[in-house]
Computed example of a mutant assay.
Amino acid sequence: MDRLKILVVEDNTITALDLQEMLEEAGHTVTAVARTFNEALKAVKTQPPDLALVDITLEDSAENGIETAREMLLMHRMPIIYLTADSDHDTFQAAKETMPAAYLLKPFRADELKLQIELAYHFFQVNQSADNPSADHLFLPIDKGYEKIALKDVLYLKADGAYVKIFLVSREQPYHISMNLRHLAQYFPPANFFRLSRSLLINLNYLERLERNYLYIIGHKTPIPIPATSRKELMKRLTVVRTK
Rank of each mutant, 00 (worst) to 15 (best):
A52I: 05
A62W: 01
L41S: 05
V30T: 14
A69Y: 09
L23V: 10
E21P: 00
K42S: 13
E67H: 07
N64K: 04
T31C: 12
E67Y: 00
M72W: 04
R35T: 14
N64I: 01
L74R: 12
V54F: 00
D55A: 12
Q47K: 10
L74S: 02
N38Q: 13
D60W: 10
F37V: 00
V54W: 00
A62Y: 03
M75N: 05
Q47A: 12
R35M: 12
E63I: 09
R35Q: 15
A32W: 03
A40Q: 08
V30R: 04
D60M: 13
A40L: 13
T31A: 08
L51C: 11
E24L: 09
V44H: 11
T57V: 13
D55E: 11
E21L: 12
Q47E: 13
K45I: 09
Q47L: 09
A40M: 10
E67Q: 14
K42G: 02
A52C: 06
R70H: 06
E25K: 14
A62F: 10
T57C: 06
L74G: 10
G27T: 08
A34T: 10
L41T: 05
K45D: 14
F37N: 00
Q20Y: 08
E39A: 14
A34K: 09
T31Y: 09
M22D: 12
A62S: 11
A34Q: 09
M72I: 11
L74H: 08
N64C: 00
A34N: 07
E63N: 05
L74V: 02
G65E: 01
A32P: 02
E24P: 07
T57Q: 11
I66Y: 01
D55P: 00
I66R: 01
I56T: 03
T68W: 11
A34W: 04
F37Y: 15
H28L: 07
V54H: 01
T68K: 04
I66K: 00
A52V: 05
I56G: 04
L73S: 03
S61Q: 02
L41E: 04
L53A: 03
L53F: 03
E21K: 15
E21T: 15
N64W: 02
L41Y: 09
T31L: 09
M72E: 03
E25D: 15
L23N: 02
A32R: 06
D50H: 14
R35P: 06
N38T: 13
A52N: 06
M22V: 03
A69I: 07
V33H: 01
R35A: 15
D60L: 11
E67L: 04
Q20I: 12
L58P: 01
L51K: 03
M72V: 03
F37T: 01
L51G: 11
K45A: 15
K42N: 13
A32D: 14
R35C: 12
V30S: 03
E39N: 00
E67A: 13
E25Q: 15
K45F: 07
N64Q: 06
I56H: 02
K45E: 15
V44K: 10
D60C: 04
N64Y: 03
Q20F: 05
T46Y: 08
N38E: 15
T68M: 11
A40V: 10
M75W: 00
L41N: 05
